[in-house]
């Protein structure tokens, strides 16, 4: 769909485009998950796919994450290319043994004989008043594990490009999407920070070969005064903060890591070397988070280039509250990022 202002494409549609395009060229790919078929997707990501690909390849699973998560691992070992959708990553915890004990270790334990080219994807992160157990962010949990790859796409463009790369990749690939971003892009540029206007957030049209290589961080907004390293939905918090900070004369650079495994530390370090300041933002809890890891790697790579300590902005260290406003307060929101940037650049 093309509007007069450019493309309108929702994040969920970009995910669907990625799966559809890949499924058309690779018969081994199937999509399995709760409500992906007859219901057209709990969040309408897979809308219409059952009609095109049929029930053999678009498989409605009962609510058995251990069962169908592990089924995906077995099918991948056999040679298929499963895409396992978790309605929410919060529901994957019951399948932890399958997705983090089996999937990422199979190649190693079998001495290179059986890999696991499976994709696990679903919604990640709080923000919809779903309460604590439904508000998991799993990048910090899972990026810990060698053998898997993990992406946290922030825009429809990245969602499509990274998911396609992940589907083609021979290793287990975790795609962390966001319920709160699925509808973004419906109104084109209006849904995004002005730094992302002119369709920078959208994938190219009619380009079936468009992929985004894993381990390529993306500078969502160039700047000179401070580097903000972030991922996924917090990228938009950071861009919002960037707009506010620009009015104060602070020109931040927003680096979207895109993938935590592998982590493109070179791009991150390059940015920090230019600015001398770093704020790391992620929506995990602070302790042993991906943000902590990125901060640590910044220290390792840029120690002599830092004019202040690296500051981290995370979810507050509490279970997600239900209260609408308090839940927003808990997130690594733009206000917290603005404060952190001011502080780290000695402008507090």
């Amino acid at each position: 769909m093309v509007s007069t202002n450019g493309r309108t494409l929702q994040y969920r549609e970009a995910l669907r485009e990625a799966m559809e395009e890949e499924m058309r060229i690779d018969e081994r790919i199937f999509l399995m998950g709760e409500e992906v078929g007859e219901y057209n997707g709990a969040y309408k990501v897979s809308q219409g796919m059952l009609e095109e690909f049929g029930p053999r390849r678009i498989v409605d699973s009962p609510i058995s994450e251990t069962g169908f998560g592990g089924l995906g691992v077995g099918a991948a070992m056999y040679g298929l290319r499963p895409i396992i959708e978790f309605m929410s990553w919060s529901f994957c915890l019951v399948a932890a043994d399958q997705i983090i004990n089996n999937a990422p270790k199979m190649l190693y334990m079998s001495g290179g004989q059986f890999g696991c080219p499976a994709v696990f994807r679903g919604n990640n992160g709080a923000g919809g008043q779903l309460g604590s157990t439904h508000s998991w962010v799993v990048e910090s949990l899972f990026s810990h594990v060698p053998g898997l790859k993990l992406a946290v796409p922030s825009t429809p463009r990245d969602a499509k490009g990274l998911l396609k790369a992940g589907i083609r990749d021979p290793d287990p690939f975790f795609n962390l999407e966001s319920e709160r971003m699925l509808g973004m892009g419906l109104h084109g540029d209006k849904d995004y920070s002005r730094y992302q206007h002119a369709n920078k957030w959208a994938p190219p049209e009619n380009d079936k070969d468009f992929i985004i290589e894993l381990c390529k961080a993306d500078i969502k907004k160039p700047g000179t005064d401070c580097t903000i390293v972030t991922d996924g939905r917090p990228v938009h918090f950071a861009l919002e903060a960037a707009e506010a900070l620009e009015e104060e004369g602070i020109d931040v650079e927003v680096v979207d890591v895109r993938t935590y495994r592998p982590l493109d530390i070179e791009t991150i370090a390059g940015s920090v070397r230019r600015t001398g300041y770093a704020v790391v933002v992620d929506q995990s809890w602070p302790f042993a988070s991906v943000g902590a890891e990125v901060a640590s790697q910044i220290y390792e790579h840029c120690f002599d280039d830092l004019d202040n300590q690296v500051l981290r902005v995370h979810n507050d260290d509490i279970p997600a509250p239900y209260s609408r406003q308090r839940e927003q307060d808990m997130l690594p929101n733009a206000k917290k990022i603005v404060d952190a940037v001011r502080s780290v650049t000695y402008n507090a």
Partner: peptide, 16 residues
């Protein structure tokens, strides 16, 4: 939107 007002330092950030 104007810049958010400076508020009390957040917990995660080091006050200067």
């Amino acid at each position: 939107k104007p810049a958010p007002a400076p508020a009390k330092p957040i917990a995660a950030a080091t006050p200067t």
